[in-house]
Design a protein around this nucleic acid. Structure first.
Lengths: 192, 192
DNA sequence: TGCAGAATGTGATGTACATCACCTAAGCCC
DNA sequence: GGGCTTAGGTGATGTACATCACATTCTGCA
């Protein structure tokens, strides 16, 4: 399906834009293709874009002490991702983004987003709504972390995104859940 | 200090509003006072307001199995709080809010916020920015949960909000950190 | 096609934390 | 001011998980 139509359908769910306004908005996006394993944002990079996934699957992750990786988000089609902390505060990336599979993304610069938000009220409305949705998801995940054990979080994740089971290696799922790959392995193979 | 001036200073940091626009915005807020221990939102309530703290300290929390409490947020002056999930999705409250100390808050209904956001572009801008800030804080806390042990999270919390140490009973700090009160007690008293 | 590296399984052991049980000290209320 | 509630400390014990170590596939690619 056409990237432009995917983005359009996504935005029009929340905001009311004329065709002309949407075309103007869309003219600020750039389509890029990435290969499996390729990095989009690496730790220490200057960050000035955010990314809307058209196809494939990305991960946004943090690496601690150059050893442990924690996955903040698997980004699937119609999801947005970036290191938003670095993007908004104009600091260097602490969160990295790369491709779990081949992927196509639409890139939007921070400056362009802010410009468009100033020019088109409904665009600002859309981005408010989108951020709000991210905030609620993040809060829900935080609660799940405090409240549920690993097994429950694992089942919750697979219930929400069944595709992940085949798409994503298990050690990445462990990194999302915040446990070691060994523990995850023992969890779903008998050995209780 | 005057509630109106506190809110005005808070909003004008991010958005550009004329006095007339701000007065109009402010006319939708209602000031309320609450006593220490009083509930603002209880589990199961219909939620249709969010709250801007003028003075005092609130907590937003979740209770699991009618037993364990997890604190999502301590809300201090100039912070916003509510059960945003229930507020936006028009569902019943799963998150409760009550007062750790006597408090004054400005109440804004969801309907009024949406109305004003539609009418005043800069108001929408402010609320986008505010949500964004909440999203980043939530993501940071999530990372801290995965990455740091309890002691590090405790020190991080006190470094960020030194007032909490005297203002808030220790078992509430434990509920924020997601550990038992016993563990927290052992942490900062010698017994390593 | 054959080999290197990645992904995964599984045992042994250590540790941070929960839980239960009980104790002390400090508000608070009629 | 005596009793009740709430906050907080501390020991004993159990458990979920990390970590280390190694074995076993699987997979991409030269």
């Amino acid at each position: 399906m056409d990237p432009k139509e995917i983005l359009k359908a996504h935005i029009l769910k929340t905001a009311t834009l004329t065709d002309k306004e949407f075309d103007y908005l869309f003219s600020h996006f750039k389509l890029k293709s990435f290969k499996k394993g390729q990095a989009i944002i690496s730790e220490g990079d200057k960050v000035d874009h955010e990314y809307f996934v058209i196809s494939g699957c990305l991960k946004a992750f943090f690496i601690n002490d150059e050893i442990k990786m924690y996955i903040l988000q698997f980004a699937m089609p119609t999801w947005w991702t970036s290191d938003y902390g670095a993007l908004y505060n104009h600091t260097r990336a602490t969160i990295s983004v790369d491709c779990i599979s081949n992927a196509e993304v639409l890139c939007l610069s921070n400056d362009d987003r802010e410009k468009i938000c100033g020019e088109i009220h409904q665009a600002e409305h859309f981005f408010r709504w989108r951020t709000n949705r991210g905030y609620l998801a993040s809060q829900k995940r935080l609660l799940s972390f405090m409240n549920n054990d690993t097994k429950a979080r694992y089942e919750e994740l697979l219930a929400m995104y069944p595709q992940l089971y085949n798409l994503v290696p298990k050690h990445l799922i462990a990194a999302y859940l915040g446990v070691s790959r060994e523990t995850l392995s023992r969890l779903y193979n008998g050995q209780k």
